[in-house]
């Protein structure tokens, strides 16, 4: 087990290197020039050229790449072109809102989706089941920004019960202010995952409910609740956890949109701003960071299998 973890962590290194190279080349080959953006409207051609030179953008791409990789190897993600702040500082500043948004979304999703899916499986064919399935299809089909603006329009602008936008740190403003500002973003972001996970839960639980050991459990007089919780759900856990893990990884994209709609100063908005301004070091740093998180989550999921299913050993 220990060696397995070490092996997996080491295996992330080549993956990260490939991601780094890919990101670097993709950015350099796509159109756009940070020097032109910095120089601004009234800059002369010489101004742009001078800025390119200072930023090192005139050097051949392999040289730029070598310098960047050498920098990375020292654990330095570089300095943002526009704010002149280290990329690690920028990530640090924006980490909290994104992390808390993702965490609340995961908790909310699991708390809603797993019971919904389980009930739907248990009552397969009933109106609850049909409602859950309908919700899954609808939830999966509505784009995040449409849902976001609909919620804002109804709950914030018409009913005026929730704030329109913004983020309040729980460490500064307390839990209540934090939650008030988080409700809409979390609902917006979680709907698609609730749909996905509820469907998956329903399918696997339904399958497990056909198993012999469930019949045995019932035969020995276990309550239906216990049958569902300890026999059905426990055995259906591996695929459900896999989907939850995938969902977390996919959330990175959803976070960008949700943070823009609700004006949350997190990593998603940092990515968007950096892409629009062509702030190369920030984009590179963030994509590497996201890839690292992605790999980490996958590792954690794989490890959680051993807890959920004792037959799995590494």
């Amino acid at each position: 087990m220990f060696f397995y973890i070490i092996k997996r962590i080491l295996a992330t290194i080549p993956v990260m290197v490939i991601v780094a190279l890919f990101v670097f080349l993709m950015l350099r080959l796509s159109p756009g020039d940070p020097a032109a953006v910095i120089a601004g409207d009234y800059a002369t051609t010489e101004d742009v050229e001078r800025i390119r030179e200072q930023l090192g953008l005139n050097e051949p791409i392999p040289v730029q790449m070598y310098k960047w990789i050498a920098q990375l190897a020292r654990g330095d993600l570089g300095t943002a072109i526009f704010s002149k702040l280290p990329v690690t500082t920028l990530i640090g500043q924006r980490l909290e809102p994104t992390l808390l948004l993702a965490l609340c979304t995961i908790i909310f999703t699991v708390l809603v989706a797993v019971p919904l899916g389980t009930i739907a499986a248990y009552k397969a064919g009933s109106w609850i089941d049909r409602f859950v399935m309908l919700f899954s299809v609808a939830g999966f089909s509505v784009p995040i920004f449409v849902l976001g603006y609909m919620l804002i329009y109804v709950l914030s602008m018409q009913l005026k019960i929730l704030p329109v936008q913004g983020y309040k740190s729980p460490f500064e403003y307390g839990l209540w202010e934090f939650l008030r500002h988080m409700i809409l973003p979390v609902i917006t972001l979680s709907v698609i995952y609730i749909a996905l996970i509820a469907r998956m839960t329903r399918a696997t639980v339904q399958e497990v409910l056909q198993e012999d050991y469930v019949r045995t459990a019932r035969a020995k007089g276990q309550s239906e609740f216990k049958v569902l919780m300890f026999h059905a759900l426990r055995n259906a856990a591996v695929p459900i956890v896999t989907v939850i893990g995938l969902g977390i990884a996919l959330m990175i994209g959803g976070v960008v949109v949700t943070e823009s709609v609700y004006n949350i100063p997190g990593l998603g908005r940092l990515v968007l701003d950096a892409v629009l301004a062509r702030d190369y070091p920030v984009i590179q740093g963030l994509i590497l960071f996201f890839s690292f998180i992605y790999i980490l989550i996958n590792l954690l999921i794989d490890l959680s299998y051993t807890l959920l299913d004792p037959r799995i050993r590494y």
Binding site: I152, Y153, V164, N263, L272
Partner: peptide
Amino acid sequence: YVPIVEPAARLSAITTGE
């Protein structure tokens, strides 16, 4: 000064008095 990137979000913030 608060940054609100989306024009629609700025609109809802000004009409609700935020």
